[in-house]
């Protein structure tokens, strides 16, 4: 099963290689990884998407916790949470498809962030399934370039009933 794991780490030299080395050294899988500084510049947050059965994921979270520079590990999959990815897609459609490209971008709440005589660059954020859907739909129109971020995730706060 796939798991999205949030790892809060000390923003120190070499910490990324400690994490990635742990995954490669122990044969765990990284499907996607996104890293950035938090509001506190001394701390970075990594969102790692990995897969494995319960035993493996338990080991992954324990092994991550064992690293000296790791402050906190949260398996988001166990919580109610919001996940997002972003893609930038450069499409070069035929003349007759241009309107359809723009329509699709609108349906998926995408934005055209760049355009030229032959191309549109569309930015789309959303959950994995949404991203996959738009990619499928745009493929026949001629995708020229495609970049995608790793997943980021945040836990939802509970709402008290009035």
């Amino acid at each position: 099963m796939r798991h999205t794991i949030s790892v809060l780490v000390e923003n120190k030299f070499g910490v990324l290689s400690r994490i990635s080395g742990l995954f490669s050294g122990r044969g765990y899988n990284i499907e996607s990884l996104s890293v950035n500084e938090t509001i506190d510049p001394q701390i970075s947050i990594m969102t790692i998407v990995t897969s494995g059965d319960d035993w493996i994921v338990e080991q992954i979270t324990k092994q991550l916790n064992k690293l000296i520079d790791v402050i906190k590990v949260v398996d988001m999959t166990e919580l109610d949470h919001v996940e997002r990815e972003m893609v930038l897609i450069k499409v070069s459609p035929r003349q007759e498809d241009k309107a359809e490209v723009l329509r699709l971008a609108e349906i998926f709440r995408g934005r055209v962030v760049d355009s030229s005589q032959k191309t549109y660059t569309i930015e789309i954020t959303g959950e994995e399934k949404k991203i996959e859907a738009i990619v499928e739909l745009l493929k026949p129109m001629g995708i020229k370039e495609f970049v995608r971020t790793g997943k980021i995730a945040i836990a939802r706060e509970g709402i008290k009933k009035a």
Binding site: W55, E58, Q59, K62, Q63, N65, K66
Partner: peptide, 8 residues
């Protein structure tokens, strides 16, 4: 003392 040793 090492949680990773348990259930490994």
């Amino acid at each position: 003392i090492d949680p990773t040793s348990i259930r490994k």
